[in-house]
């Protein structure tokens, strides 16, 4: 199908489909994703403060929904990985990361918004940078400089393997972890949204511009795939927010751990 479309003048979606300057142009343009990010911050702030102001013993529907999300970040991730005793200083980070990423991802399939802001790499880099600084700071503060760097080595490594294993562990802590943490979220949102664009734009082109009754009939299949993939995206978007927070908790716990 893409071949047929390409020969007929269809431009398939690519990285350029994610550049939507609304005000101005160039490096200082105000883009669509900025509006999404600001809107999600305002929504999270309002909803959380409103819910926290009128907490009830018997929760209303809204309070129950907010509490469920909080429960995922706190009990399912935080308590499991970091442990209840040491969780308190990291709880705000985990919960706000989870809510922020979840809402920004969901913006990819909310009608009329339909732009996952995490498909722009810059936002993900900032989030990863926060996590990166936090887990190194926590580890250095807990164990001191020497202890922290000694702690990279897994216990039980034979002495002759140390020169091989230690550089690999250093690479893991300083390069691989932030790289994969940021790329995972970015690439999932980018690929998922591109997939949706392929089916939506392809279906639209087949229906309106192909001028062939048989090709127009196949647009139904394209739109059906678009709807199916939208539900699949919902799952992926939730899962990616969950995984980002889960790995954050894991890295923090690992930096504080006495032994590997």
């Amino acid at each position: 199908m893409p071949y047929v479309l390409a020969s007929a003048g269809f431009t398939p979606p690519g990285p350029s489909s994610f550049w939507h300057p609304l005000i101005g142009d160039g490096a200082f343009a105000v883009t669509r994703s900025m509006f999404v990010v600001v809107a999600t911050v305002i929504i999270i702030g309002l909803v959380m403060t409103m819910t926290a102001k009128r907490l009830q013993l018997v929760p209303t529907k809204g309070q129950f929904a907010v509490e469920s999300l909080y429960n995922i970040a706190r009990n399912q991730i935080g308590v499991d990985f970091i442990g209840e005793a040491r969780l308190r200083p990291f709880l705000p980070l985990l919960v706000s990361l989870f809510l922020f990423i979840l809402l920004n991802n969901l913006a990819g399939i909310i009608p009329f918004v339909q732009f996952p802001s995490m498909s722009r790499f810059g936002y993900v880099v900032v989030l990863t940078l926060i996590v990166y600084v936090v887990y190194h700071y926590v580890g250095l503060k807990k164990k001191g400089f020497g202890g922290y760097f000694r702690g990279f080595l897994p216990p039980g490594v034979p002495i002759w393997l140390v020169p091989v294993v230690y550089p690999l562990e250093l690479l893991t802590y300083f390069v691989t972890r932030p790289l994969t943490l940021s790329l995972r979220l970015f690439a999932n949102m980018f690929a998922g949204h591109t997939l949706l664009l392929v089916f939506a734009l392809g279906g639209e082109y087949l229906l309106l511009h192909s001028g062939n009754i048989f090709l127009q009939a196949t647009s139904v299949a394209s739109f059906a795939m678009f709807i199916a993939m939208t539900f699949f995206e919902l799952l992926i978007q939730f899962l990616q927010a969950y995984i980002f927070v889960l790995l954050t908790a894991y890295y923090i716990a690992d930096a504080m751990a006495e032994e590997h």
Partner: peptide, 15 residues
């Protein structure tokens, strides 16, 4: 959580 952690680490290669 262990399964999802493993999934995330394996998925990193694909990413």
């Amino acid at each position: 959580p262990i399964a999802i952690l493993g999934f995330a680490l394996a998925e990193a290669l694909a990413i």
